[in-house]
């Protein structure tokens, strides 16, 4: 079974220049070409400018960059603390954006219900999904994430870039809340896919690359050698993300 047998949809990639360093691939044509060569036909992308500087400005840069590239699916970065919900709603609807990514720590606010709640209520009505970065410098306190996500079970949450430093919290969190999903881009644990399948099944696992920080090819090689049935591999590499974007819950 090869991932080249069907399209792979990457749930975690960035597109655009960074202010603090140069990355190998920051132009849409180059990104599409590199990902295609790696076996990835479509990628959900956000703009790195939107993280340290301007969310809506970065989102506009993103829309400009993905124009004419149907392989690049835009994801908006928002600050639940300072962005205007009406402005975000209008821009998301106009661009067909179905997922949001938040950086509470970088944007200086706690991920708590009295800040995030109104946004999540809107996202639930629109059947949108939320990406929350973890990794070496997690963007949320796990207790805040649990308490807030628990109050909004109709908003799927994707833990982006979960890394071994997050493992102790990620395993029980996946078990505790069935609308928590896991981007696999940094999930390197030995036998990790087999253990996750036993732990929570495959329907909440999403292939992600963390491109251009990480080379996506080795992880796709790994997934092809996990003994997964075709349906399982398709679910991780494409179908689970397609379902989230379509506003459907895990089956």
């Amino acid at each position: 079974m090869s991932t080249s047998d069907f399209p792979v949809f990457d749930c975690n990639a960035a597109l655009g220049r960074r202010h603090n360093r140069r990355v190998a691939y920051d132009r849409p044509d180059d990104v599409v070409r590199f990902l295609a060569a790696a076996g990835i036909s479509k990628a959900l992308v956000y703009h790195p400018y939107a993280v340290p500087f301007g969310t809506m400005e970065g989102n506009r840069f993103l829309l400009d960059a993905v124009a004419g590239h149907p392989e690049l699916v835009p994801q908006f970065v928002v600050s639940f603390a300072v962005d205007d919900p009406d402005e975000v709603r209008a821009a998301a609807e106009a661009a067909g954006v179905r997922t949001l990514r938040v950086f509470p720590k970088s944007h200086g606010y706690p991920f708590v219900d009295w800040i995030a709640g109104p946004w999540l209520e809107w996202m639930a009505r629109e059947r949108m999904a939320l990406w929350v970065p973890l990794g070496r410098n997690p963007e949320v306190d796990i207790r805040d994430l649990y308490e807030t996500a628990r109050r909004h079970p109709d908003v799927p949450v994707v833990l982006a870039g979960a890394h071994y430093s997050n493992y102790a919290a990620v395993w029980p969190l996946l078990k505790a809340l069935d609308h928590i999903h896991l981007d696999l881009s940094r999930f390197d644990a030995a036998n990790g896919i087999e253990r996750l399948e036993r732990h929570v099944g495959l329907d909440r696992l999403l292939f992600g690359s963390d491109f251009p920080e990480v080379d996506p090819k080795p992880y796709l090689h790994y997934l092809r050698h996990c003994g997964l049935e075709e349906n399982g591999l398709r679910a991780i590499c494409r179908d689970n993300l397609e379902r989230l974007i379509a506003g459907e819950r895990a089956v």
């Binding site: 071994y164 390197d188 644990a189 030995a190 036998n191 080379d215 090819k217 992880y219 090689h221």
Partner: peptide, 18 residues
């Protein structure tokens, strides 16, 4: 090398093979 059990050897073998 893989750093087993921290990381899966399939990933790092994949880095070499790809």
């Amino acid at each position: 090398g893989s750093d087993l059990p921290l990381m899966d050897p399939r990933i790092h073998k994949g880095r070499v093979l790809t």
